[in-house]
Design a protein around this nucleic acid. Sequence first.
DNA 1: CTAGGACCTATACCGGGATATAGGTCAACG
DNA 2: CGTTGACCTATATCCCGGTATAGGTCCTAG
Lengths: 138, 138
Amino acid sequence: MPDNGLRIGEVARRTGLSVQTLRLYEREGLLAGEVHRDRAGRRIYTDWDVEWLTNCVKFRASGMPLATIARLAHLVRAGTGNEAERLALLREHQRRIAAQIAQLNDSLDLVDAKVATYERHLAAGAAGDPWQQLRVER
Amino acid sequence: MPDNGLRIGEVARRTGLSVQTLRLYEREGLLAGEVHRDRAGRRIYTDWDVEWLTNCVKFRASGMPLATIARLAHLVRAGTGNEAERLALLREHQRRIAAQIAQLNDSLDLVDAKVATYERHLAAGAAGDPWQQLRVER
DNA sequence: CTAGGACCTATACCGGGATATAGGTCAACG
DNA sequence: CGTTGACCTATATCCCGGTATAGGTCCTAG
């Protein structure tokens, strides 16, 4: 009803976050724009807010803590002048994501190897336990 | 001192897990081999246990819940005969890791883009806020 | 007029995993 | 000997994000 203002339920549907989570995020300072209210006191979000929240979802998905998102939001809210700080924060997170991916690839190698072993093992009709066999019972 | 038996402190050092965590893991059934004790009641680990724990660390690092590791450990402990089940479990985790990596890459794309934008922005001597500028103040 | 649905606040709780604390026992070494 | 350090159990606490509950306001539609 408000020209292009969205209510929390709609935003929840669009972002995939629950209504409670949206309120939580606001309390925790994750929003980079004022969310104003209609005369009934209900939150009204802009498309830009939704866009921001969509980014937040990705930040979360890549393990950025709420507190860090809040710091970024704070910088953005503060307006032009702190771009270098934002960049530093983003670079740091970039680094972390890369590290996570490396970690996961490493773990994946192990799992791939085990899967391959078991596949061979089962295909071959099972002789000896691929995991247990190495274990010398003392 | 015990021929090749390791005590918990040493295992902690080797696996990177804390002593308390090692005990926790044992309580939660993550160990695939009996840990026996010396006459003083102290846990004695084998090299094989350490190897297993090292794998556990990778499982954890890739988000496998303790309960799932415990299920796997249980299967391994049960010995030969349930390889298909182990394989299914591992394949499932393999799938999940792949999904996580995809997720992370997706998030990384966003962060990369933002970083690039800010770099350009800063290099160019700052005109307009790369994040805020899109925002139409209503 | 009234029922229902979406929203509001405040507060409590949950789940997973790890860590801390308290109060022992033991063995090894000076 | 006696002290020290590594270990033991049991239990409590923490952290983080998110979810649930209780009790209310408001708007809209039948």
